[in-house]
């Protein structure tokens, strides 16, 4: 097997793994396995998958450094775009299914409900990152500006975790687990940055 074929196979496997939650959710939805309130369950599941992929995308750089596997970086774009796809589906299900395009109610929610205001902010901030994910966009922006723009994820990810934390009624353990993982991932970057500065 040529290295190129191997590369394609690995890439396809990663893509399929990222895509897998979608057929799984469709299967559960059609099989009446999402409980008595499938719309709410679907919104929750899509939101949680969006958050998971945001965290995985943030884990790729530290993993590549710590495991000395720089080629892992090439998956960052795919994982990040899947994070956006899940958040977009999460948003569409809320607006189009849960609220059934009742824009007045949606706007009121965004305005009045802090957890929705925060979730919406995170979603809107993800859009420029998704739009500038192409090679052409990277060239057009130049690597420095592109990198600066994509540091928005350091704001988006905490907003996503906060959005999850705030909607939970009593058991805060699951969102706190996501918060813990996020602290580790952002902490790693902070330590790296401080080390770099000290090294200068």
């Amino acid at each position: 097997m040529s290295p190129k074929t191997k590369d394609r196979l690995v890439y396809t496997a990663v893509w399929l793994a990222c895509f897998a939650p979608i057929p799984w959710l469709v299967w559960r939805l059609l099989g009446d396995d999402l409980g008595a309130n499938p719309i709410e369950a679907l919104i929750r599941q899509l939101g949680v998958w969006g958050l998971r992929f945001v965290l995985v995308s943030l884990a790729i750089t530290p993993a590549a450094r710590l495991l000395r596997q720089p080629r892992l970086i090439r998956f960052r774009r795919t994982v990040g775009l899947f994070a956006f796809a899940y958040v977009l589906l999460h948003w569409c299900t809320y607006v189009g299914v849960d609220q059934f395009f009742d824009w007045a109610a949606v706007l009121k929610d965004i305005y009045k409900r802090p957890f929705i205001t925060i979730g919406m902010t995170a979603f809107v901030l993800l859009i420029p990152l998704a739009v500038t994910s192409t090679n052409a966009a990277i060239r057009a922006l130049g690597p420095v500006r592109w990198k600066r723009l994509h540091r928005l994820i350091y704001v988006i990810a905490p907003l996503g975790v906060l959005h999850y934390y705030m909607l939970v009624k009593a058991d805060h353990r699951p969102p706190l687990i996501y918060a813990g993982v996020l602290v580790l991932l952002l902490g790693y970057r902070l330590v790296e940055a401080l080390r770099k500065r000290a090294g200068r």
Binding site: A36, N37, I39, E40, D98, A105, K108, D109, K112, R113, P114, F115, M166, L167
Partner: peptide, 11 residues
């Protein structure tokens, strides 16, 4: 944290 103006009847 959320509106009480409407509800989803299960089903």
């Amino acid at each position: 944290r959320w509106s009480q103006a409407s509800e989803r009847r299960i089903g």
